[in-house]
Design a protein around this nucleic acid. Structure first.
Lengths: 192, 192, 192, 192
DNA sequence: CCTTAAGCGAGACGGTACGTCGGGTCTTCGT
DNA sequence: ACGAAGACCCGACGTACCGTCTCGCTTAAGG
């Protein structure tokens, strides 16, 4: 049985609001636990009771999960992948992800436990979407390979590169071009 | 003419050694200017006189530039791209890049000036290599498209994804598969 | 009429035990309400229901009051005062008083209400003992002055000084010497 | 040779001012290092660089030492001791000592090193004054005993008792009465 | 007997202060 | 003028307690 005073949902809400507000104002690096606590009108202990680090907190608040985005079934592999790529572009250039992802990625590299949760909650979820799209294509008789992780990397990687390693903007038509590249790659023998 | 005592090369060496040692011991996030100064037996002022931030210092020391890697000319676009991909994999999974890149990427997103220098010094240099490879292919009569940046993103992005967003390891044969995908993409009309 | 569940004596016992144990282990300053509650297996509310502060709690537990030490009647003022001084020395150098008094005194200076209770429960009680001794002496025809508080200060003050302001140890024979000093002071005209 | 930037006297002054102001406003217990740093416009590190605790800081600032109060030589032991007692009363009921002493005494009991410094800097200094007075009296042919520490305790103890253990006020004429008591005690054989 | 008020252990709550660490700047002396 | 050294102000860190407040559960007295 659960003993003691139960945790208050109000804290979670207030922290989530404060995190989003402060991220928008100053970005991930400038976000501090002290600052969030003060802005949320919450004790620091209430935050540390829930999350062990800034990275965990932001991860929980911003990446918390609405990734159930069912992949559209347009009847063609290329169109499905293009839609998925467009979805990833939207996600990564969205209001918060853009501010959060580089810093969060850095923290992941120093916290294997959190990295595992990111892997499971975000990467694996997206790979599952790719797998579903490929399965459907295979059912239709299209050539769909057998490595959803590779196809996923072929979509996510270039998008991440444009956004966070190169200039910061995604070129127009990128989703289509990535989908075409992926389809072309699937229809190729890798060694001559 | 320069007056006063000239800068001592000894400082640069000592700092470079200290940065490498401390990176290996504790990683990028745990690296501090104080720590580097103490380890190098150097004053903090001597460091700030050279670089404006931790990110600049590490960037200068670790990514300092020896990227003159002439792209091998193997006579085939696919083989050239594969060699380049292999080179990128080696670079990114090298001893320091692996420890440094996620944190450095995060700092880039908060320091536009440094981001521009990273863009110019690393991204543009690699894009130029791709451009050279594509030019050679075109001269040979192969289909080479007109967007080296896209081809570069197609190589670097998935590698970065595997190393820093997903598990941390690059699957075997990745360089070949990426090169094949790029070549296939180039031989495709992007709109049906 | 008292309704509701009556207070459990078990709490008082458990708290008293915990306070004594923790005092012995770490002293007054390191004693915390959280610590006492945890050690006693008691809720913090149960403690705050009984006492308003750490000082009150410790005061109640350690100085709880059994000071009814009837002053021995030896037939001589000097001997009576010496016995009382010896008693005070024993009290103040006892196992807990020694750990508690300096900190408790400090808290008194910040809590007038508690100070008044300390004054009434400890100081006034001891002054009453002195008054009784002086009355007996006066009845015997000895010179006993008319200011028990002064005589009491003449006994308690030096003892406190030796124990808590100077080194920490009471010199041998102190009780006798203080009694002699007090008697001598009583037999003196204060202004020539 | 001393290397590095020397400590700034401005910090010492600012801290001393802030400590005095905050003591007057809220007392010793409510004084915090954070508060002093903020009020003084000084970093906490600057404080911790100088003193290891609140008690050390306050001790250094308030009790800093100028106790060179030469003992008046009035030609009589009783008058000298009375003057000294009056001086002690003034000291202890002075603006800061009153706020500081109880809390400081408490901290002494938890910090033997500081206790030793208090003993050496304050108690021993006052005992030396007593010793000097007694020496002068002995030179005059008066009976002066051989235990300055005892005489000192006979003066300081009752004063401390009145101020910090009993009500808080010193009764009028106390200095004279303590001096008389001390003189009387010196002229007495301690064992019947 | 059955309500019901108050007690109980537990522990979360908003806060404050702790002592430490790092950032980026400034100031000394010696080279 | 540069060098090492190190103090400067600032602000965040993660921890520990404070005193208060819910929880769900006894526990007895009063109706």
């Amino acid at each position: 049985m659960n003993r003691g005073r139960p945790r208050s949902g109000h804290v979670d809400e207030a922290v989530a609001d404060a995190v989003r507000a402060l991220l928008a104002e100053a970005g991930y690096q400038a976000l501090s636990i002290d600052g969030v606590a003060a802005r949320a009108g919450v004790g620091k202990a209430g935050i540390y009771r829930r999350w062990r680090s800034k990275a965990e907190m932001v991860f929980a608040v911003v990446v918390h999960g609405p990734h159930p985005v069912a992949p559209a079934d347009s009847g063609s592999l290329r169109a499905d992948l293009s839609a998925l790529a467009e979805h990833i572009i939207d996600l990564l250039s969205g209001p918060y992800a853009r501010l959060v992802l580089p810093g969060l990625t850095a923290d992941l590299s120093a916290d294997p436990a959190l990295a595992a949760r990111f892997q499971a909650g975000v990467i694996d979820a997206e790979r599952a979407l790719v797998a579903e799209i490929l399965d459907r294509a295979r059912a239709r008789g299209e050539d769909a390979g057998d490595d959803p992780a590779f196809v996923h990397a072929l979509l996510l990687g270039p998008i991440y590169t444009y956004l966070f390693l190169a200039g910061g903007e995604v070129p127009p038509g990128l989703a289509d071009r990535l989908a075409s590249a992926a389809v072309a790659a699937l229809g190729t023998k890798e060694s001559p």
